[in-house]
């Protein structure tokens, strides 16, 4: 198995209408770019909507972590529509519940508290990524 196949695929909710969609996306960026670069891979959720072959292969052949912004769970359900069980399904609101001092606001751009919460979320998600990468070894 090559290294590329060991990457954890991170899929964020693609919502443009809610603060928690923006928070989910920012947490995904923080996780992939700052916290666990090299062992994670970010891909666009709508590629699964159109059944893109490359994205489908990436998702079905690698461990997947989804970060959803609302109870509709578009990210998790879009993966499961491919017949793949999500290895680590995350609801981003849980991070706010655990860190009430960081209230996210804004949709197009998160406020400072929201950006901090995204960093905290990504830091805490590192353990899930590590677990998934260990399982793949």
């Amino acid at each position: 198995m090559n290294k590329k196949q060991k990457k954890v695929v991170v899929l964020a909710c693609s919502g443009i209408g809610k603060t928690y969609g923006a928070l989910a996306r920012e947490a995904a960026y923080e996780l992939v770019e700052r916290v666990r670069p090299g062992v994670t891979s970010l891909t666009c959720l709508p590629l699964l909507v159109v059944n893109d072959a490359e994205a489908r292969h990436l998702v079905t052949e690698n461990p997947v972590l989804t970060i959803d912004g609302c109870p509709r769970e578009c990210a998790r359900k879009s993966v499961e529509a491919l017949g793949k069980v999500v290895d680590s399904p995350i609801q981003v609101i849980g991070f706010y519940t655990a860190h009430k001092n960081l209230k996210p606001e804004g949709v197009a751009k998160l406020n400072e508290a929201g950006r901090k919460l995204a960093m905290v979320a990504a830091d805490e998600l590192a353990a899930a990524v590590d677990e998934l990468t260990q399982e793949k070894k």
Binding site: S14, G15, L48, V49, R72, C74, S78, V107
Partner: peptide, 18 residues
């Protein structure tokens, strides 16, 4: 939000599946 707030609506694309 700013240019056509009363004339536009949106939906998240993956909701067509979810």
């Amino acid at each position: 939000d700013e240019l056509k707030p009363h004339k536009t609506v949106t939906i998240c694309l993956p909701l067509f599946i979810a």
